[in-house]
Design a protein around this nucleic acid. Structure first.
Lengths: 340, 340
DNA sequence: GCCAGAAATGATAGCGCAATCATTTTTATG
DNA sequence: CATAAAAATGATTGCGCTATCATTTCTGGC
């Protein structure tokens, strides 16, 4: 682990600072962590010593001694989906301002890797944890429950939360969009996404849609799922594929806006009339959805908000408060635009 | 720091596992960290004990005892710019596979906050660090140099690296794009970005462009800078603003593709002919740049690649190798499309 | 079977800090 | 001014683990 071991001068420790300032180590520790409890005189002297010795607190030792770090692990299934990035940015906003560091785990939609990440992160004695989704391996759930510290499951709103929960119902979102499409008169609707077997939130949107189609006695199709992470170009390809394979499709509900926007741009380029030939709908409410032509009908999900709320729920608990709600439904909003 | 302190059962420690398995703690430690050095019999027995007790390694203690953690801090100036996210994803790819955790710091383009982040992160005894950019406060540079462990400065390619460096020359990128625009016959060129005073990489692209304009004796303009993070909608607004304020502008070099794509979409919507009325160019090479109409002329920067290389440079050094090159110019590529 | 060398295991010590309680100094009060 | 209470400071101890060195057990060659 140690790189080219040069004859590095010994690291400066608390003790060194203490000696330099002529006080006890404990006083230095306090001056650094709870300045209010140290007299102004000493605080200044210690500050000067810290400065002149170039002392950097060893947070590892601090975390061990006090049995707790200020690191908050955040576990997400993907970084290539812009949604998670925005959520992370929201968490960062709040957490960093409160003096917490984020540690990032990426599971690539693999529940075993998720377990690994959780279990590794627990080893950092974090004061709490944020994890995307509510579907985990049993042992993951058990581990977190036994752990007993605050845990926020985000992105999805559900009843079986391990501890706290912030998100929205993807099933309802699917229902909402499908209802809209059916109301508009579309009859041959298909759902297109990526890694749907793993991305069960997308799958739930599909199921919500499917239920509505069933209720209206419409043609129900299996979702179309592509491998690999979603990206803009893929949406366009998917559009062309489905139009060729299933010409009578008159509406597509994409699993996310990245795909849907890609499809609209491609349609424009290929001269496919949207929504006349085929309607296109997405999910997320990316800023871009409003800029393409026609505007993309989508479901707005408050991504930054989810992140911020998740972080605040944790911070509340750290502070000893019981948060107003253990479960927050941030809800969503259907945004109808030209594409349907 | 401790939340509602319930009468939690004592944490399971190495010692507990050792007793349960009837071996010494040291053997358990070895079985966990260097399995090859422990006999198969004991390894199995210890594994069983770990399982049945639900033991989770305390990485904090481990890091303290061995004076080194497996956490790699990554410091970026922003998370709202998709570029950094992609770079982070690249780092994650490589680092997580090698068993390292990423710790995320966001400076919001503030060099003081950068110093704070660096100094906090050093407290986690990381084996190395990755930081965006080459422009830092003197004390930040000094801190990192004195630290002596591997540091990668990324995004930008330059000569004054603290240690290792992966990136590209933004100045040259600016020159390249400007040369292209001038060659195409554009004469009234303006640079538009966000937070240019802070985002000095964007500023360097501007300077590169400015030099070319000067050389050709063309009208040189101050860059136009908007406050706050860049986003798609802003690009469109900026386009309309500049066309109204300075009608004779015939080409815009946007600081990034997010803005440029927004501008193209807006132009389309408002009936502004691109590139006839005004040419539009960007920087980054987002996938989207190829999908809009007309396609966006841009400079492709290998973002994932930068992240991967940065991570690999670190890992190489951890392994004791001297990396082939301390400084890697990943270069860039001018991608000419319809928008110019 | 005996022994040298290798492999496996164990005992000890300490990483750098903060919790805790003991002690000293300061402040407020009558 | 004496004294109790509060504030500031210090001494001790241990967080859970691994580096290091000491010891034991296993190997193979003769």
């Amino acid at each position: 682990m140690s790189p080219t071991k040069m004859p590095t001068e010994r690291t400066v420790t608390l003790k060194d600072v203490a000696e330099h300032a002529g006080v006890s180590p404990m006083t230095v520790s306090r001056a650094l962590n709870k300045p209010a409890t140290v007299s102004e005189t000493l605080r200044a002297r210690i500050g000067a010593s810290v400065e002149s010795l170039g002392y950097v607190q060893n947070l590892v030792a601090g975390a061990l001694a006090s049995a707790g770090s200020n690191v908050i692990p955040v576990i997400v299934p993907s970084l290539s989906n812009s949604v998670f990035v925005e959520v992370i940015a929201g968490i960062q906003d709040v957490a960093q301002a409160a003096g917490y560091q984020l540690m990032l785990g990426n599971t690539e939609y693999d529940l075993d890797r998720e377990y690994g990440a959780v279990s590794t992160f627990l080893g950092w004695s974090p004061p709490g944890m944020i994890i995307a989704g509510m579907r985990h391996l049993d042992r993951t759930r058990n581990l977190l429950k036994r752990w007993g510290k605050p845990v926020v499951e985000m992105m999805e709103y559900g009843t079986q939360a391990i501890d706290m929960n912030v998100g929205l119902s993807h099933y309802k979102a699917g229902e909402t969009m499908a209802t809209h499409l059916v109301t508009q008169g579309y009859r041959e609707i298909v759902f297109i996404g990526c890694r749907i077997q793993a991305d069960y939130r997308a799958a739930q949107r599909y199921k919500g849609m499917d239920r509505i189609l069933a209720r209206h006695g419409l043609h129900r199709r299996e979702p179309i799922s592509y491998d690999g992470p979603s990206n803009w170009a893929l949406g366009g390809d998917a559009l062309m594929d489905v139009l060729e394979a299933t010409p009578k499709v008159d509406a597509i509900f994409f699993a996310n806006d990245d795909l849907a926007v890609g499809a609209i741009l491609r349609a424009q380029r290929e001269g496919v009339a949207v929504p006349k030939r085929v309607a296109i709908a997405g999910f997320n409410g990316l800023g871009l959805a409003d800029l393409v032509q026609p505007g993309l009908t989508t479901i707005m999900s408050p991504r930054l908000e989810i992140g911020r709320v998740a972080a605040r729920q944790l911070l509340d608990r750290f502070a000893g408060h019981t948060p107003a709600k253990r479960r927050v439904d941030v809800s969503f909003q259907l945004q109808v635009r030209g594409s349907t």
